[in-house]
């Protein structure tokens, strides 16, 4: 861990600004805060509706279910994507949502299941690369942009959000907030409290895409080609 050439570099900046070098500054109270106005008083149900609408713009399939019916819904989505192979992570929430059992019987029905494993780095990538479907859970969900927040963790790799062909994200309804503003506020507060951030926080809105060829939208470039969100009534 090194920091090189800092003093000279910062001195030059201070010189250009015509004052002595500063290493500390208070963040001011901003005059404007338009971001707080977006979906300000929306209810949780209204936010779900916004999310659902936005899914159409980002080429993402939206499904909503209660916890009881989640296994059926998940089975259907996996079947629609062609089954084959699933990569996911070990997480007690799968148990809580009642889909752990379903995942356990998949191998018997010909669907391979792989759980990201902190002890087998190479195998994780190999499996993610071959997986037809990735299944994850959103930590925080932004209604405005239909965005799932996914955090890296020893049991939850980064590459599994990108390498599989299809993505399924489980979205507990309680995780839905108006927009990125609320997620940023929360993370900022965690930093202020001295908590360590995950090495990678990903805000993912639907499948990968590009408009680099004649500005025609192509869905599915380097990351997933299809995405389905399953919103779970968990409250």
């Amino acid at each position: 861990m090194t920091i090189q050439n800092r003093d000279e570099f910062l001195n030059q900046i201070a010189k250009s600004l015509g004052r002595p070098v500063k290493t500390k500054v208070e963040r001011p109270v901003w005059k404007h805060a338009p971001q707080l106005e977006v979906l300000k008083n929306a209810s949780q149900d209204e936010l779900v509706e916004v999310l659902k609408q936005q899914c159409q713009n980002i080429h993402t399939t939206f499904v909503q279910t209660d916890t009881a019916n989640l296994p059926n819904v998940l089975q259907q989505v996996v079947t629609d994507f062609g089954g084959e192979s699933v990569i996911t992570w070990n997480d007690e929430r799968f148990e809580k949502f009642g889909v752990k059992k379903l995942m356990e019987i998949w191998p018997e029905t010909g669907i391979k299941v792989y759980e990201w494993n902190p002890d087998t780095p190479k195998e994780n990538i190999r499996q993610a690369e071959q997986a037809n479907i990735g299944i994850t859970i959103s930590e925080m969900t932004l209604a405005e942009s239909a965005t799932a927040m996914l955090c890296s963790h020893p049991k939850r790799g980064r590459a599994m959000n990108f390498l599989p062909q299809n993505m399924i994200v489980l979205i507990p309804k309680s995780t839905i907030v108006p927009r990125m503003t609320q997620a940023a506020q929360k993370i900022h507060q965690q930093i202020e409290k001295g908590q360590q951030l995950p090495s990678c926080i990903l805000f993912m809105s639907g499948p990968s895409n590009s408009a680099d060829i004649e500005s025609v939208l192509i869905v599915g470039v380097h990351g997933p080609v299809n995405a389905t969100y399953i919103v779970i009534e968990d409250q």
């Binding site: 936005q54 990678c200 926080i201 990903l202 809105s205 639907g206 990351g223």
Partner: peptide
């Protein structure tokens, strides 16, 4: 509204 990915990377893994 947002791009498909907004990725926040802090240090090495």
């Amino acid at each position: 509204r947002l791009t498909s990915y907004v990725t926040l990377l802090t240090g090495p893994k």
